[in-house]
Simulated assay, not measured.
Amino acid sequence: MIFDLHPKETIEELVGREKEVEHCISQILSKNWIIIGGQREIGKTSLMKVVINEIKKREQIAGIYINLRGVRSLNSLLTILVSEINKEKISWRFKVNINFLITSAGIEIRGGSKRRVVNSLIELLNSSDEIVIAFDEVQELSFASKQFLDILGNVYATNPKVHMIFSGSYVGLVKALLSPPSDSPLHGRPPTEIRL
Rank of each mutant, 00 (worst) to 15 (best):
I2A: 10
D4E: 14
L5M: 10
L5I: 13
L5V: 15
H6V: 15
P7N: 13
T10Y: 11
I11N: 04
I11L: 14
E12P: 04
E13F: 11
V15W: 02
R17A: 05
K19F: 06
K19D: 09
K19Y: 07
E20W: 03
E22S: 15
H23P: 01
I25V: 14
S26L: 09
S30M: 13
I35M: 01
I36E: 00
G37F: 02
G38C: 02
R40Y: 08
T45K: 06
S46C: 13
L47P: 03
K49I: 12
V51H: 02
N53C: 06
K56W: 07
R58E: 14
Q60N: 15
Q60A: 15
I61H: 03
I64R: 12
Y65T: 08
Y65P: 08
I66W: 01
I66A: 05
N67S: 15
R69I: 13
V71T: 11
S73G: 08
N75V: 10
N75W: 05
S83C: 12
K87R: 08
K87E: 09
K89H: 12
K89F: 07
I90H: 04
R93T: 06
K95V: 08
K95L: 12
V96W: 01
V96F: 03
N99P: 03
I107F: 09
I109P: 02
I109D: 03
R110K: 12
S113Q: 06
N119T: 13
I122T: 07
I122W: 00
N126D: 11
N126W: 01
S127L: 08
D129R: 07
E130C: 13
E137K: 06
Q139I: 04
Q139G: 03
E140R: 04
S142F: 01
S142D: 11
S142E: 07
A144Q: 00
A144R: 00
S145N: 02
S145Q: 03
D150K: 07
G153N: 05
N154Q: 09
N154V: 09
V155N: 00
V155D: 00
V155S: 01
Y156D: 04
A157Y: 15
T158C: 06
N159G: 05
V162T: 04
H163L: 13
H163N: 13
H163C: 13
F166L: 04
S167Q: 03
V171G: 01
L173Y: 00
L173N: 00
L177N: 00
D183V: 08
S184E: 02
H187R: 05
P190A: 09
P191E: 04
L196D: 01
